[in-house]
């Protein structure tokens, strides 16, 4: 049995280490399609997180009851139920937002982040850990979508969350709120994330190597 990681780690790994957007590269369809503004990104991520949390917990609770042959079917039914609830609530209480997100709310059903976490994590861990994992992944997704929505809204419309930040003299880059802008933004963000990761990895390797050399030197010194 592998060593259990701490509860905090269970939550925080979703923020960066296995960030759904930058690391797992899951849920690209809503990521690219709805992030034309920061508020859309937040709404989409919150709806996804809601579904993620409840389906993860429920799936984790019944994980021992579901025969493995029908587990995917069972997961999809559970996920679809929560998505439909989210869709109804949004339509009833936030009609404007529901209109802006359009068909992408029902499409959360097939969002790979949710099925991915259900299959990779919730089906193997207890409800508490699944909740933390879902929360972490949801938050990671929220950060990524908010960031993307903000960048695209800022450059494409001069605003973030509707507040104008760039002066009138700035000609908005319409491409940023078109689909092409989504791909460019996502690509650049992932590129930057990779640069950061590679630097980190390299410095880790370097430190290991220098430590090794140091210990070797001291070892040889003591031998001499």
């Amino acid at each position: 049995m592998k060593k259990q990681i701490s509860y905090w780690k269970e939550f925080s790994k979703g923020l960066w280490e296995i960030n759904p957007t930058f690391k797992q590269v899951l849920g690209m369809c809503p990521t690219l399609a709805v992030t034309v503004s920061a508020i859309n990104g937040v709404a989409m991520a919150l709806a996804t997180t809601f579904v993620l949390i409840f389906s993860s917990m429920l799936i984790s609770t019944i994980r021992k009851l579901v025969p493995s042959q029908v587990r995917i079917a069972a997961y999809i039914v559970i996920i679809a139920t929560f998505v439909t609830i989210a869709d109804f609530v949004m339509k009833a209480k936030f009609p404007e937002l529901s209109k802006a997100l359009g068909p992408f709310v029902p499409l959360i059903v097939v969002n790979c982040v949710i099925l991915g976490r259900a299959e990779a994590f919730a089906s193997k861990n207890n409800p508490l850990r699944s909740l933390l994992d879902a929360l972490g992944n949801g938050t990671g997704f929220l950060i990524a979508l908010t960031l993307m929505g903000s960048i695209r809204e800022l450059l494409g419309n001069r605003t973030i969350f509707g507040y104008q930040l760039l002066p009138e003299s700035f000609q908005p880059l319409l491409i940023m709120i078109l689909p092409a802008g989504a791909f460019i933004t996502l690509g650049l963000m992932m590129g930057l994330a990779n640069i950061y990761m590679n630097k980190k990895k390299k410095s880790e390797i370097d430190s290991v190597i220098s430590k090794y050399k140091e210990s070797k030197a001291t070892f040889e010194e003591s031998k001499a």
Partner: peptide, 14 residues
């Protein structure tokens, strides 16, 4: 049994 009951519960909730 499992699938039916999940679907049933889901139907009732929805």
């Amino acid at each position: 049994i499992v699938l039916t009951s999940i679907a049933l519960v889901s139907g009732v909730v929805l």
